[in-house]
Computed example of a mutant assay.
Amino acid sequence: MLAFFMGMALIAASSNDNVARDDFAVCLKGQIAKATAAKIEAAAFAVFARSACAAQASGFRNALIAYDLKAGWTRKKAEPDADAQIGDYLADWADRYKDSLSAK
């Protein structure tokens, strides 16, 4: 019975994680057009997007940490993992931005 409730708690946390992840991804995607219009260099896109999507990144980071804590991770392990995932998203969208510039 306890396992059932623990499983349900992880599913609920995962759902919150997905909403926060989607919000962050939508914000990053929106920055492609803004960066193009502002003629942001490809090398500066990650900094530009991090600043523009700071609120969404914070929400995503908090959701990732909460999920990991519920899964039994320590905060000391969960925080750098969340930061790494956010960094991966920024790097991925920076690559997409670079590709969009070279396609023109």
Rank of each mutant, 00 (worst) to 15 (best):
G59T: 02
A37K: 14
G30S: 12
D23F: 01
A33H: 01
K39T: 11
A52H: 07
R50H: 13
I32K: 08
T36Q: 14
T36Y: 03
R61M: 07
I40E: 04
A52L: 08
R21S: 14
I40R: 02
A25M: 07
R21I: 00
K29W: 00
G59W: 04
S58E: 15
S58Y: 08
T36V: 09
A20H: 06
A55W: 00
K29L: 12
A35N: 02
A57P: 02
S58D: 15
K29A: 09
N62E: 15
K39Q: 15
A37Y: 03
Q56W: 04
D23R: 14
A63N: 06
A42I: 06
I32S: 04
A55R: 12
A25T: 01
A42H: 03
S51A: 13
C53A: 06
F24P: 01
R21V: 00
C27V: 04
L28S: 07
A49M: 04
A20F: 05
S51G: 12
F45A: 10
G30L: 11
F48V: 06
Q56D: 08
A57T: 01
A57R: 06
G59S: 07
A20G: 09
R50N: 14
R50V: 00
A35R: 06
R50Q: 15
N62R: 15
K34M: 12
C53F: 09
A52Y: 02
C53M: 05
S58R: 10
A49I: 03
G59R: 12
A55G: 03
D22W: 02
A44V: 05
A55I: 05
D22P: 00
V19A: 10
K34T: 12
A54E: 13
A57D: 04
I40K: 07
E41R: 12
A35K: 04
Q56V: 02
A35D: 03
V26M: 11
E41G: 14
K29H: 10
F60W: 14
V47M: 08
E41S: 13
A52V: 03
C27H: 05
K39L: 02
S51M: 08
Q56E: 15
A25R: 15
A42F: 06
A37W: 00
A20V: 01
C27I: 06
G30F: 07
A55Q: 13
A52R: 11
E41D: 14
A54Y: 09
V19L: 09
F48K: 09
F45K: 06
F24W: 12
A57L: 09
R61A: 07
V19W: 00
A38Q: 15
